[in-house]
Design a protein around this nucleic acid. Structure first.
Lengths: 201, 201
DNA sequence: TATTGTTATACTCTATAACTATA
DNA sequence: TATAGTTATAGAGTATAACAATA
């Protein structure tokens, strides 16, 4: 697809009948992105789309979307959480989380169990099948992660994770679309797993 | 690199019934994100959401969405482009680009002019009003950009732009959801958000 | 009264097929 | 036949309101 590097423009208005071969020579009249090329938001969006495209392709074999993967990871790491806790941790509205869980439950990956002490809530757990799948998913994820970081290397990846982490930590403190009505659930913290991580110390 | 996550418990002032002890207890009950905390895709998504939230808030005053802004920037920088060129440059399907342009044209910011030599296509230009607005938009954008980069500083921003650029340049070479049918248009990299709305009746 | 899960619903963004008028 | 713009439509993803059961 058209993801080459722009820069170096010359003509741009007067091309009319173009063959595929000529299109290949399009590098000469690349469109000027202007400030978009220096816009953090614009490039974040593009990078996120590219990464998700790879993720989706990678996980097509197991028919899982990124959000579904993140739910399995959270439940696997924190068995027994309520729906509202998991959904809040992932910034998913609890109302949209219901059909999502329905599907994972129907696939036999997650189970809604009775929560001790509060009969309103459900305690979420992975099934045996869900746990087995999760192990495989983490291998797929490691492949994916390695692939998308090929161009920046392990050091670049560390830098990127650090920069994004700092940006997020500040960005979401105040009012934003992130705010969910079930807001004051448990705070979230990440933990290094060593899993797909650093290739170097 | 433990980073906090969205969520604002203070928004509705109901923090009042939470003691310090309870808040501290939250730290102990923090949800473990597991590998998500080291997932480039996951953090990219969160960062992009946080940045877009700031963008949307900033540009609410002029009633413009990120994608609309990117369209104005591209047309301003490259007057005379065809619709298919602009939409391909921004990875917007030409079919979805139509109602977007309709709205910008209706608002008097963009004009579809006759293209010389090919009566099928439209040459896109900013109107005088569009140009005037764009100057103001760039000031809004600069404020936004400064704000979202406060925590990482100018050096951090340079690093981030560089890393994202390298990641994007590699990421979308092969088949992916990015592929648009009008793929062999100009070799540009771009992708803002979705588009602004438009009601149809 | 407040919270948990749920249903129903609507709006935004994205994707595909097919039409028209040109080329 | 192929391309540019367009229409219609369907699908994700995300948003809000309201209800029943429980606290």
């Amino acid at each position: 697809m058209a993801e080459a590097v722009p820069k170096s423009s010359r003509k741009r208005g007067e091309d009319s009948h173009r063959s595929k071969a000529e299109a290949a020579a399009d590098d000469r009249n690349a469109i000027d992105l202007g400030i978009l090329g220096e816009s953090v938001g614009f490039l974040l969006k593009r990078a996120q789309m590219a990464v998700f495209a790879d993720f989706i392709e990678t996980f097509a074999a197991v028919d899982l979307r990124p959000a579904q993967f993140s739910v399995l990871v959270i439940i696997g790491r924190n068995p027994g959480l309520k729906q509202s806790q998991v959904s809040a941790a992932l910034n998913i509205k609890r109302t949209n989380f219901v059909p999502m869980l329905d599907l994972l439950e129907k696939r036999g990956l997650v189970a809604r169990k009775l929560a001790a002490g509060d009969r309103r809530s459900h305690a979420l757990h992975l099934t045996a099948e869900g746990s087995t799948l999760l192990a495989e998913l983490q291998r797929l994820w490691a492949d994916h992660e390695r692939r998308i970081c090929e161009q920046i290397g392990p050091d670049g990846r560390d830098q990127l994770l650090s920069l994004l982490g700092r940006m997020i930590a500040s960005g979401s403190a105040s009012a934003s679309p992130f705010d969910v009505d079930e807001a004051d659930a448990a705070p979230v913290k990440a933990r290094a797993t060593g899993q797909g991580g650093r290739k170097r110390g």
